[in-house]
Amino acid sequence: MLLAYAQLSLQAFASIFAPLFGQRGWRLSALFKQMVNIGVASMPTVALANFLLGIVLAMQGAGQFEKLGATDLVAALVTFSILREIGPLITAVIVIGRSGSSITAELGTMKVEEEIEALDVMGIDPVKYLVVPRLLAMLLMMPVLTVLGEGVGLFAGWLISVTSLHLDPIFYIHNATAAVEQKDLWTGLLKALMFGGVVGTVCCFYGMQVEGGAEGVGKATTKAVVTSLTAMLAMDALLTTLIYFI
């Protein structure tokens, strides 16, 4: 199972870079279609989830910092957590639930309906034709969605602090920028990129493995979502350790 996953992932990444070595380029129309499916269509949900978490973070932080008489630390808490962790994490969770599951279900249905075998018989590589546009769209759109989510989350934190906690709007921004470094933004985006790779390969893999009709598609979709979530969290832990503790 792991071997088959590794094989598919390697083959997919090799196909992504193949145009650099003179082979036929990416199917741009298929790529744009997937970027819209995975990225653009996820924007409202990603924005809403990050907005709500920005509010929750600010309110929870304010409750604790108030006891210490340090309410202005809310800005640091919100910015720091959103850029480093919450932004990439919650965005990936939304993308897994929304787009990852749909990738597995779509590829799985194609497998069941013999469409993938038909591609093979026509001499068209299903990995190049189906997996590459989805994986590439995931790699490109996960960071884009993360930036959007982080922006909305930061705005939500600022909004609640200014309106409900009566913090000074400019002072909040000053505190927020002082609390983080550029590295925090880059590491968050690196995480997003890695999450995109993990989610894309896992969901495509389970889709391509489906057997046994509609029931098989359902089971594979569940497995893809659970495995993507677990692998994404494990990747998060690993990257946090590598970047901040070693």
Partner: peptide, 26 residues
């Protein structure tokens, strides 16, 4: 494989494409 054609039991047409796109694909 380029020298042979295959008609699958279910047809195996790509549902997301039109009839013309299906035939044009190979």
């Amino acid at each position: 494989r380029k020298r042979f054609g295959m008609l699958f039991q279910t047809g195996a047409l790509f549902n997301s494409m039109t009839v013309g796109e299906n035939v044009a694909l190979p």
